[in-house]
Simulated assay, not measured.
Amino acid sequence: MSLVLSVNISKTKGVSKKPIDKAIAIKGYGLFGDAHACKDSNRQISLLDFDEVMVFKDVLHFGSFAENITTRGLNVESVSLDSMLKIGSIIVLVTQIGKTCNNACNIKKLLGSCIMPKKGVFGVVLKGGLIKPNMPIEVLNGENFYNR
């Protein structure tokens, strides 16, 4: 089973995010208070598995790679495009795996590398709600979700 380790937001794009105790995911928007939340984006929320970033453990903190949700057990091999992630009452539709990295990325400059282009999972919020650490993450396919 996958698990939320940390929920992270930032008020500015292009910087590391800071862990918070809890957040509200808003349907069609993203995490309340986060700079990347946007109703017209297919990357309203981002997830990154902690095991993927262990190589950076000397400089790492939750949110180092600007991920909204740091997970354990949810890596790019465990999801596919159009997977749905159930986190408590929240439903996130996976819309993108990886992304194009900006060469001027502050995170890349600070850490020397950025793994979001290969390991980041991005999605849109289909159903909002509260999200906080230690919540389980369930990967659903469309059939399982709609038959609930």
Rank of each mutant, 00 (worst) to 15 (best):
F50V: 04
A35D: 10
A35L: 03
K22M: 08
L47G: 02
F32R: 10
S113W: 08
M1W: 02
M1G: 15
K39G: 15
D40I: 01
H61W: 12
D58T: 03
A23G: 11
V121W: 06
I26H: 04
T71G: 10
V124F: 05
G28T: 05
M1T: 11
A23Q: 05
K39L: 07
S41W: 08
S78C: 08
K17H: 05
P19I: 06
K22P: 01
A37C: 05
L126F: 06
L47A: 09
S83R: 01
S2F: 09
R148S: 14
M1C: 09
I9Q: 10
I45C: 10
G33S: 09
F122A: 15
L5P: 06
F62K: 06
K22F: 15
I97V: 14
K27M: 04
D21V: 01
S41K: 03
A37R: 05
S113C: 11
G73W: 01
V125G: 01
K57P: 03
F56N: 14
V92H: 09
L74H: 08
E143A: 07
V53H: 00
M1A: 12
I9K: 09
E67M: 08
C38G: 11
A66L: 01
S64Q: 05
E77M: 07
K57F: 13
Q44N: 00
P117V: 03
K57Y: 14
S113D: 13
I90T: 11
G88V: 09
N134W: 12
M1E: 13
V125L: 08
E138P: 03
V55K: 14
N147K: 02
E52C: 05
N102C: 12
N141Q: 05
R72G: 12
N68T: 12
P133S: 11
Y29E: 07
S2W: 03
T12L: 07
F50S: 10
S16K: 04
S10D: 13
M1D: 07
S113Y: 12
C101Y: 00
G120H: 07
R148P: 03
C105W: 02
K108F: 06
G120W: 02
V124N: 07
I131V: 15
D58Y: 00
D21F: 03
P117K: 09
N141H: 07
N147P: 00
G142N: 13
V53M: 03
L140G: 04
F56L: 15
S46R: 05
M54A: 07
I45L: 10
D49M: 14
S41C: 02
I20C: 09
D49K: 12
N75F: 03
T12Q: 09
I26C: 08
V15H: 05
S2K: 13
S6M: 05
K132E: 14
A23F: 00
E143S: 08
E67C: 12
L48K: 00
S16P: 15
G88E: 02
L81N: 00
G28M: 08
M54L: 13
I115N: 12
G14F: 01
H61D: 14
I90P: 14
M135Q: 14
K22Y: 13
M84R: 11
R148E: 12
